[in-house]
Design a protein around this nucleic acid. Sequence first.
DNA 1: CTACAGATCTAT
DNA 2: TAGATCTGTAGC
Length: 195
Amino acid sequence: MKLGFDFYDRRAVQVARDLLGQVLVHERAGGRVAARIVETEAYIGPEDLACHASKGRTARTEVLFGPPGTAYVFLVYGMHHCFNAVVEPEGVGAAVLVRGVEPVEGIAATVRTDGPGRVCKAMAIDLSQNRTSLLGEGPLWVEAAPRPAARRIVRGPRIGVDYAKEWADRPYRFWVKDSPGVSRPSSLMLPRRNA
DNA sequence: CTACAGATCTAT
DNA sequence: TAGATCTGTAGC
């Protein structure tokens, strides 16, 4: 069953942690694509300098202030899409970014799904899903699934938000320990093993 | 109006 | 380590 209003209508950090293990589904003409969420980041509101809502209400960020359970998709670096779920009560500009998934259905095993850009590419998510509801009959939703054991959930600072001053160090990133769907900063990339 | 940097990824 | 490639936002 789909995660509903009450799931998203909570603190961003809580939703980010609870989204781990849940299954993101995109149903479209070409068929259904589904993947298990293994990495998320919370962007907690306008006071959070890493959150797009810190820019105030603009054409781009307006959706963040809307009802929880809405898709927020944006384009970064002119080529990569990032998928978020709007969270917290209406009026609070907050969201949870999905940074990594593991294929469940409709994604070739060879396709990489670690990193927010790759998640959207693998799941065919783009700006056409921006502002669509995750709660009703829209093309995107999150299916409830068993959560990972608490001891398999790891927490740390968000990626790529160094400009956000003290907010950059806040531990708002959550991921499932040892999952291949979890992204790693290039500076920490391990050398490729051929053995 | 122009300039610039960004919640990234890939190839060199 | 830099280039792709586009848009919101700031600055003039």
